[in-house]
Computed example of a mutant assay.
Amino acid sequence: MNAIALLELKKKTQDKGLWFWTFLLPIIFIVGFITLFGESMGAEPEQLVVQIVPGYTVMFSFYIMISIVIAFIKDRDSGMTARMASTPLSRMEYFLGKWLPFVAVVLLQIIVLFGFGVVVYDLPLGDPVALAVLSVGLAFVATGCGMAMAVLAKTENMGIALTQVIALGGAMLGGLWMPVEFMPEVMQNIARFLPHYWALEGYKTVLLEQGTLLDVWASLAILVVFGTICIVTALVFYPRYLRQAKS
């Protein structure tokens, strides 16, 4: 398991496209939206920063799904999956080895984007424990969705297309682009069924209201439930993924 995790992490550090999607593009979006739409949204500077920085952090964390899908499909089609299945390595060890490096990437992404917000826009951080635990919950659900998508998608293009739907659709409906209270009531009700909404609400509670871990337990619990459903789905459908692997 450790060897798989180290190999996957090494590949991620060498993937320039991943660094662009993970760090550079989110920063461009954050700067652009705060610069262009700050005044038109009519919010206080602190409220605007707390809406946009965590909002785009949550949205782009789900783009890790693309890298997960590509990694799994490449392993499946290159014969790597079949070779690993013939070893004593268990299904769970294989999954952990592939999964944990992506969790680390998302956590690093959150640290970088929030750090950028602090340095450039004086983003308040609030309780560090609540912020850290909530970030782990976000990384868990984003990578969990990616793991499920990776074993369900038959082709790389299908996985990427579905990732766009989840990331962009979740961002739009989950209140990441604009405060939920500005949206129609129907969309507000839909938002409450999305992990994107609960991640942002948790962050806003910590950053704006100085909330503690006890104040964001509901958001955290929902993120964990979503992530667990995705991970269980990935494990259940792994045999089908394995049957599709080239020997």
Rank of each mutant, 00 (worst) to 15 (best):
P184D: 14
M65Y: 01
V112Y: 00
V180C: 02
Y203V: 13
L100Y: 13
L208D: 10
M183V: 02
L220A: 02
P128M: 03
I34D: 13
K11V: 09
Q14P: 02
A218N: 09
L213F: 03
A132S: 14
K204A: 03
E39V: 10
I52G: 05
A148M: 15
S135V: 08
A43Q: 14
L168T: 10
M158Y: 05
V112K: 00
L194D: 02
I222W: 08
M172P: 08
T143D: 04
V106T: 11
P45W: 10
L176W: 04
L7W: 13
A234N: 04
V53C: 01
I70G: 04
Q51G: 01
L207H: 01
W21D: 11
F72K: 10
L162R: 02
G42A: 08
R243D: 09
K98L: 06
G137Q: 00
S40K: 12
L242A: 04
V31L: 11
H196L: 10
L6M: 15
M59W: 06
T163V: 09
P54V: 01
P179I: 11
E93Q: 14
V69F: 06
G126K: 03
P54W: 01
V50S: 12
K154M: 07
M147F: 14
L131N: 10
P101M: 11
L100R: 12
L200D: 04
L25E: 06
V225N: 05
T228G: 04
H196C: 10
V106R: 01
L194R: 02
V118A: 15
K246P: 05
S40F: 12
R243S: 13
L100Q: 10
I222V: 15
M178C: 08
F116Y: 01
L220Q: 08
L48V: 14
E201V: 07
D215A: 14
D127H: 04
L113G: 02
I64H: 03
P26L: 03
L200K: 05
Q51A: 04
G159S: 09
W99H: 09
M147Y: 09
L125H: 04
P195F: 06
G227W: 09
T163F: 05
A148G: 15
G227Q: 09
L208Q: 14
V69P: 00
G42F: 07
L242Y: 05
Y241R: 12
I166D: 08
Y63L: 09
K154F: 13
A234G: 08
L24S: 09
M65W: 02
L96G: 10
Y241F: 15
I222G: 03
R240M: 06
Q47E: 05
L25C: 05
K246R: 15
T87Q: 07
L96R: 05
L24R: 02
L223S: 01
R192T: 09
I73L: 15
T205S: 15
V106K: 00
V236K: 06
I166K: 12
L168I: 12
